[in-house]
Deep mutational scan, measured.
Amino acid sequence: MQIFVKGLTGKTTTLEVEPSDTIENVKAKIQDKTGLPPDQQRLIFAGKQLEDGRTLSDYNIQKESTLHIVWR
Rank of each mutant, 00 (worst) to 15 (best):
K6T: 13
I69F: 07
N25F: 12
P37Y: 06
L56F: 02
P19C: 05
N60R: 06
T9D: 15
S57V: 06
I44A: 05
T22Y: 07
I61F: 02
I69M: 10
N60H: 10
E18Q: 07
S20A: 09
M1N: 02
T66I: 12
D58I: 02
Q49K: 09
D39A: 12
Q62M: 11
T66G: 02
I23W: 01
L15N: 00
R54A: 08
Q40K: 14
E64K: 08
E16H: 10
I30C: 02
V17I: 04
R42N: 12
V70Q: 13
Q41Y: 15
I30T: 02
I44T: 07
Q41W: 15
L36K: 05
L8W: 13
K6C: 11
N60K: 07
L8S: 09
R72G: 13
K6F: 06
T9H: 15
D32S: 13
T13W: 15
K48F: 09
G35W: 03
H68K: 08
L8E: 08
K11W: 15
T66W: 09
Q41S: 07
R72D: 15
E24M: 13
T22H: 04
N60D: 08
L50Y: 01
E18D: 11
R72L: 15
L67C: 01
F4N: 05
T34K: 03
K11S: 10
Q31Y: 15
K6A: 07
L8Q: 09
D32F: 11
E18M: 14
D21R: 02
L56D: 00
P19S: 09
I69T: 03
F45V: 03
R72V: 15
T9M: 13
Q40N: 11
K63F: 08
I23A: 02
T22N: 04
L36T: 07
G10M: 08
K33L: 14
W71H: 14
E64A: 08
T34N: 04
S65E: 05
L36N: 04
V5F: 05
G35V: 02
L15E: 01
L50I: 04
S57E: 12
L50D: 00
V5H: 01
E64I: 03
I69H: 03
S65D: 13
Q49E: 15
E24Q: 11
I69A: 04
K29M: 13
T13F: 15
L8N: 07
R72I: 15
E64H: 14
G35F: 04
H68L: 14
Q49P: 11
K27H: 02
A46P: 01
D39I: 09
A28C: 07
Q2E: 09
P38R: 14
D52A: 07
I44G: 03
G7W: 15
T66N: 04
Q49G: 07
T9S: 13
K63W: 07
I30A: 02
